[in-house]
């Protein structure tokens, strides 16, 4: 192969790779924004490579056979019908592959379950059809608000053009500081819901009458969008989750503003009385 054609090949592979990166969030998980999400991302890629290798192996053999061992090319059938040796081999190898997949997964499961020593605890309550957030412990304790879809109904019924974050925008974002361990306690008021933010690799059902928890630590500031992931009735598709991750100072500012606002409400109420 000439050096020119090697260059062309390398170039086109690089281009293909680059374009696949550009589209990656369309074909793959969203870009991970936490340690756990990164683990999940890596394990999924690892699982895909294993599947691809097995796929090529099995169907390579099968399609070779389909092409070569056909009556129309005059192939005469053999008559073998069992072999204990190969049976043992093709039972053992998959077992070993599974162990290789299960080992990292086990470590991640244990890490995902460790909700201890969190910096901030927030309760997320599922309602038909919105989320309620209560800051229970840590910086911001006492803050409490509802978070509802803010996409105008006219966009849903096609009377207005749809905005960029159609169905993935809310009136009040859940605000958290970057780099802090956030524990979210989930529960629900009426039926099952599920609190899901793909970028953090967290999804947890919200069960009426019970509490469950999850944790995440956001790597960098930004807006991260998710949706309810458990069928909860008519507007199941219309109760998104938006997490706004702020720098520590900005978060402190947000907490101060929120607390001032709620104090103002209390004062007004008191004056009104």
């Amino acid at each position: 192969m000439s050096s020119k054609s090697v260059m062309t090949l390398v170039g086109s592979v690089a281009l293909a790779f680059y374009s696949s990166m550009a589209f990656s969030s369309k074909y793959n998980f969203q870009e991970p924004q936490s340690v756990i999400a990164q683990d999940i991302y890596d394990q999924h890629i690892w699982a895909l490579w294993i599947c691809l290798a097995i796929f090529v192996g099995v169907f390579g053999v099968m399609f070779y056979s389909i092409v070569k061992h056909r009556k129309s090319v005059g192939y005469k059938a053999a008559n073998f019908h069992h072999s204990t040796t190969v049976e043992v081999i093709w039972t053992t190898i998959p077992l070993l592959i599974l162990v290789a997949m299960a080992y990292p997964a086990t470590k991640t499961v244990i890490a995902m379950k460790d909700t201890s020593a969190s910096d901030i605890t927030i309760k997320a309550t599922g309602y038909q059809w919105m989320w309620g957030y209560d800051y229970l412990q840590g910086e911001g304790e006492g803050i409490s608000f509802y978070s509802k879809l803010s996409t105008p109904p006219a966009q849903v019924t096609n009377k207005e053009p749809k905005g960029e974050n159609y169905l993935l925008e809310v009136d009040n974002n859940l605000v958290v500081p970057v780099g802090k361990k956030i524990r979210v306690i989930t529960t629900a008021n009426d039926v099952l819901h599920a609190w899901w933010v793909p970028a953090f690799g967290v999804k947890q059902d919200a069960i009426p009458g019970f509490i469950r928890d999850l944790w995440f630590t956001a790597d960098k500031p930004g807006l991260y969008r998710g949706q309810c992931a458990e069928l909860c009735g008519k507007d199941h598709g219309f109760m998104p989750i938006v997490v706004e991750v702020l720098e520590q100072e900005k978060y402190a500012q947000w907490v101060a503003d929120k607390q001032k606002a709620s104090a103002a409400v209390v004062t007004t109420a008191a004056v009104g009385n």
């Binding site: 053999v61 099968m62 056979s65 389909i66 061992h69 056909r70 009556k71 129309s72 192939y75 005469k76 059938a77 053999a78 073998f80």
Partner: peptide
Amino acid sequence: MWRGSMTF
């Protein structure tokens, strides 16, 4: 399928 005499 391997080393059979297949038709489709």
